[in-house]
Simulated scan of single mutants.
Amino acid sequence: MNTASLLNNINYQENKPSVTVLLQTKTSKEVRIVMRKGQAMKEHKAPFPIIIELFDGTLDFGINGKSQILKKGDLIALDENIPHDLTCISDCIVRLSVSKYDSIERINATL
């Protein structure tokens, strides 16, 4: 059994979002991204399907160049290779579920 918390040891960085792997299972990695208002992740694609949960805050989530506002509690699932970007409207805590084969280095490269 693995356990983790989205709320423990939160570290907002002043110059870019903070990415933390909270736990890994046989099939996935659960990642926390914390962002201050105005911080962003540039457009990128994931090589595997992903699920994003906005745990707290407000986020402008761009998909193929179209903006969608996500609010606390919203979930969104994307298939692999869908261009998307994130801009934080108010301080955010994001839970990102990715394949265990995906790399945290790839996620950090979008910051």
Rank of each mutant, 00 (worst) to 15 (best):
N15K: 12
A109W: 03
R36V: 02
E14M: 08
L96E: 07
I63A: 04
N108P: 03
G62S: 09
P17S: 04
A4M: 06
I52N: 00
Q13C: 10
I50S: 05
K71C: 08
H84W: 05
D60P: 00
L70P: 00
I93A: 00
N8L: 12
L22Y: 05
K45I: 12
L59P: 08
E30A: 06
D60V: 10
I107C: 07
D79H: 11
D56V: 04
E14I: 14
K71E: 14
A40S: 15
E30H: 14
L22N: 06
L59H: 08
N15M: 08
D91G: 06
A109L: 10
I89E: 10
I107E: 10
I51E: 10
A109N: 13
L86C: 11
Q68G: 00
D91L: 05
G57H: 10
L96F: 08
Q39T: 11
I50V: 15
M1E: 04
G65L: 02
V94W: 00
N64Q: 14
F48T: 14
E80T: 09
Q68I: 15
F55S: 13
I76C: 04
K29Q: 15
L96A: 07
A46F: 01
L54K: 02
M35C: 15
G73C: 10
N64G: 11
V31L: 04
D79A: 14
K72V: 03
D91Q: 09
I76N: 01
A4F: 15
D102L: 09
I63G: 03
E53G: 01
L96H: 07
D74T: 02
D91F: 04
N81Q: 13
V94A: 02
V31C: 07
I76H: 05
L6M: 14
R32M: 03
K42R: 15
K45Y: 02
S97L: 12
